[in-house]
């Protein structure tokens, strides 16, 4: 158990230390480390958890870490996962803030960041493609996909309301479709 706790702390420390620039940049990392390499969850489950944490108070990365680890390894594992997320950035910023007042205007840092932005853009394109493959399966889901994409792109609706709206559509249309399927099944029989 002690080893497992340290392993979980290490995995999430590595994910946190590899992420630059906000919550969604962590998705490619989690897909690689947790879905592809360890098989802890599927792309679909990761999408579900990501949707949930969007509507939940707190930090996306910590919320994801806890929601992924607790059902599999228990509450203590969740605490270690959260610590893993917090420790690397804490140390880096403590170190940097005691060495330099503000290094972010240096040209070398700016060029490195511009390059990293291109890499992260390519990684997130790949993540989006994987989520489309696991989430968009029929006309109904394609419609929800397009509505969400356009609403966020035009920046007119808070993402929380998009997710809540999609949840509502899922309940209303889902029960209708299940009813239709039952009817069709009844006719065949």
């Amino acid at each position: 158990m002690k080893n497992k706790a340290l392993e979980i702390l290490g995995i999430f420390a590595r994910i946190s230390a590899s992420s630059f620039g906000g919550g969604y940049t962590v998705l490619p990392l989690m897909q690689h480390e947790l879905v592809d390499q360890r098989g802890w969850l599927t792309d679909q489950e990761l999408t579900d958890i990501y949707a949930l944490v969007q509507c939940q108070p707190g930090l996306i990365m910590i919320n994801c870490a806890v929601l992924i680890t607790v059902p599999r390894f228990g509450k203590l594992a969740g605490v270690f996962a959260a610590l893993g997320v917090v420790l690397p950035p804490l140390f880096v910023v403590l170190l940097i803030s005691s060495l330099l007042s503000n290094f972010s205007h240096l040209p070398i840092v700016q060029h490195a960041l511009a390059g990293i932005r291109v890499s992260v853009a390519a990684l997130v394109v790949n993540t989006a493609w994987r989520m489309i493959k696991s989430g968009v399966k029929d006309w109904f889901s394609l419609l929800l996909f397009l509505i969400a994409l356009i609403l966020l792109f035009l920046d007119c609706v808070n993402p929380i309301f998009i997710i809540l709206g999609a949840a509502l559509a899922g309940i209303l249309l889902g029960s209708r479709r299940e009813g239709q399927q039952k009817n069709e099944g009844g006719k065949e029989a």
């Binding site: 989430g135 968009v136 889901s141 394609l142 996909f145 969400a148 994409l149 966020l152 997710i163 949840a167």
Partner: peptide, 13 residues
């Protein structure tokens, strides 16, 4: 319902 919407959000990002 949420899965395709999240795929849309991430695509937009």
């Amino acid at each position: 319902g949420i899965r395709p919407a999240v795929a849309g959000l991430i695509s937009s990002i």
